[in-house]
Amino acid sequence: MARPKSEDKRNAILAAAIQVIDAQGIGAPTAKIAKAAGVAEGTLFTYFASKDELLNQLYLELKMELRDVMASHFPRTGSIRERAQHVWNAYVDWGVAQPHRRKVMTMLGASHLVTDASKAAGMEAFADVNATIHEAFTSGVLRNHPPAFVSAIMGSIAETTMDFIAREPQQHGQYRNTGFEVFWHAVAAP
């Protein structure tokens, strides 16, 4: 009879995957991930049928973590700008506090090994953010840019902002606010 799966072991494997992928990239062998998790490689495959499944689950876990951070105290009744700034601040603060997770999530998001279904599920988790974006476009608050383009602009400016905060943590608030202003002026309708 098979032993029940342990949530602790699953979490240890995911945490080890972050550590190993951060250091070695997505091509890191599962044997290294298993070793870092303190489990046999066969145990890793008890929890994840393949390395691709592990990568997809890790991507979704990281997306859900970020969603939870953004959802905390989300100002549902605030202006579009207030909601956008909340999302920005949460993303930047999470990225600065979790640089390894941010790096791995970025690598996974760009990888062909993460399925379109996983990427879609990751986006669906951001209902409040997506609703705000939709409202911003339909109300004319944002320029008429494709949503994916606006998201890419936000990501690029946020990455630059996080990099500067990492180099000069004493300027965290200034860089975070300046980064948001640059983003907002790039996408908001005049």
Rank of each mutant, 00 (worst) to 15 (best):
T106K: 12
A40Q: 14
E53N: 08
L62F: 04
A125K: 11
E124D: 15
V129D: 05
D116C: 08
V92Y: 02
E61P: 00
L44P: 10
A120Y: 07
K119P: 02
A117L: 12
Y47T: 06
G109D: 08
L55R: 05
H112K: 15
A127V: 14
D52T: 15
G95P: 05
R83G: 10
H100M: 11
L60F: 08
Q57G: 10
E41F: 00
Q85C: 06
R102P: 00
V104D: 04
E61Y: 04
F74Y: 15
T43K: 04
E53Q: 14
M107V: 09
W88I: 06
L66A: 06
K119R: 15
A125L: 08
G42Y: 03
E53I: 06
F45E: 08
L62W: 03
F126E: 05
V129T: 14
G95S: 15
F126L: 13
V96T: 12
I133G: 04
N89C: 05
V104K: 02
N56T: 02
V129A: 12
T115Y: 01
T106D: 13
V87Q: 05
G109R: 06
S118R: 03
H73S: 15
V129K: 08
D68I: 06
V39R: 04
K103P: 00
H73T: 13
M105E: 11
A84F: 10
A127P: 00
V129I: 13
V129S: 08
G109Q: 09
E61M: 11
A117W: 01
D128H: 12
T77L: 14
K103Y: 02
N56R: 01
L108K: 02
G95C: 13
A125E: 13
A110I: 07
Y59G: 06
E82T: 14
M107A: 15
A127W: 00
F45N: 07
T106G: 12
I133N: 06
S50M: 10
S118T: 12
K119S: 05
L60P: 04
Y91G: 10
A36F: 04
E61R: 13
M107T: 04
Q85D: 11
A120K: 15
A40P: 06
M123Y: 08
A40S: 14
A110L: 15
E41T: 15
H86W: 13
G109K: 09
F48W: 01
A90Y: 00
L108M: 10
F45C: 08
Q57D: 14
M105C: 10
L66D: 02
F45Q: 03
N130W: 01
V129N: 01
V114A: 05
W88L: 05
S50E: 09
A40V: 06
R67D: 09
V96Q: 02
H100E: 14
M105G: 10
D68M: 07
R81I: 07
H73W: 02
E82C: 05
S111A: 12
R83M: 13
S79C: 03
S111F: 08
D93I: 10
A40M: 07
V96S: 08
L60W: 03
A121M: 12
W94H: 15
L113M: 13
K119W: 02
L54T: 01
V87F: 11
R83P: 12
A127K: 14
G42D: 07
F45L: 05
W94G: 05
K63E: 13
T115I: 04
R101T: 03
R76H: 13
D93R: 14
